[in-house]
């Protein structure tokens, strides 16, 4: 009788928890939606990630240790860098950015290692005799860096940093000034963007045949913002474009205007 009573109480306890679970379901679903809208809990813990990080890593990620796991793999990638194991680094960076897609730093540094360090190392790889193949490897690493930045942007579209880094990569490594101008323009449109990025976009645009007028209008808009934007590099570009576009003398900026410091930006 006592056994039956104990069984009955256990079943009743399970029922009580199940009822609570049922009552909490709508709240849990709402909370999850709200968290995902605020960029929380949006990492797909699926088979693709399982293949990348192995069983124990996947278990750790499932148990709420995504961030420490990403940190350990990042340290591992750093060791790979010290041994110049570029392929292993790329794989580790892939995993780290999959685990922590909202950490801008990981995307930024992964892209920098690939597009700058690995690409230069590939170009000067003494084990590879063929210059064509070395050049191909260099371009592949640059593309890999670009891919990191583009994926990073897809995960963090509202932050200026990765848009800016993509602009720099397109400007310095790919030399696609048109795409670089657009990337800088997207960076400048972000609420947290520093003022110089707007100038970067216009400078790149000025190099693109057919977009000179658009670049001139942008540079003039920046010029009208006042002294903080009237830097020597900006004035030099405006004067170049005034000549190129045959801007009437009365619409040109006065020759007396001399820019402030920070010529590089």
């Amino acid at each position: 009788m006592s056994g039956l009573s104990s069984l009955f109480r256990s079943l009743l306890a399970i029922l009580m928890i199940a009822v609570m679970g049922a009552l909490l379901l709508p709240w849990q679903a709402t909370l999850q939606r709200e968290a995902q809208a605020a960029h929380f809990r949006s990492i797909p813990l699926n088979l693709s990630l399982r293949e990348q990080i192995g069983q124990s890593g996947f278990l750790a990620a499932l148990s709420g240790f995504r961030a420490p796991l990403a940190a350990f793999l990042w340290i591992d990638a750093h060791s790979a860098w010290e041994k110049t194991e570029w392929g292993r680094m790329a794989g580790l960076f892939n995993t780290v950015t999959t685990l922590q897609p909202h950490t801008l730093l990981y995307w930024d540094i992964a892209a920098w290692h690939m597009a700058w360090n690995a690409s230069i190392a590939a170009l000067h790889d003494t084990k590879q005799q063929s210059e064509v193949l070395r050049e191909r490897a260099r371009r592949q690493y640059i593309d890999l860096g670009r891919d990191f930045l583009e994926r990073g942007i897809r995960n963090n579209p509202d932050n200026y940093l990765l848009h800016e880094r993509l602009g720099i990569l397109l400007r310095d490594k790919v030399e696609d000034h048109n795409a670089a101008a657009d990337a800088f323009a997207k960076a400048a449109a972000c609420s947290d963007a520093p003022a110089y990025i707007g100038r970067f976009s216009a400078y790149e645009m000025a190099k693109v045949p057919g977009r000179e007028r658009e670049a001139y209008d942008r540079l003039m808009a920046l010029y009208r913002q006042g002294k903080k934007q009237q830097l020597p590099s900006l004035l030099a570009r405006i004067r170049e474009l005034e000549n190129k576009l045959n801007i009437p003398a009365d619409q040109r900026i006065p020759a007396t205007v001399v820019g402030g410091s920070s010529p590089s930006r």
């Binding site: 399970i14 928890i17 199940a18 679970g21 049922a22 909490l24 379901l25 849990q28 909370l31 999850q32 968290a35 605020a38 960029h39 929380f40 809990r41 709420g64 995504r66 961030a67 922590q100 909202h102 950490t103 801008l104």
Partner: peptide, 20 residues
Amino acid sequence: ALLFPDLQAFNLSDDIVAGT
């Protein structure tokens, strides 16, 4: 779903340290 707590709901620190 009914008998276990949703412990993922409490794993917000991973994203907080990412800057979210």
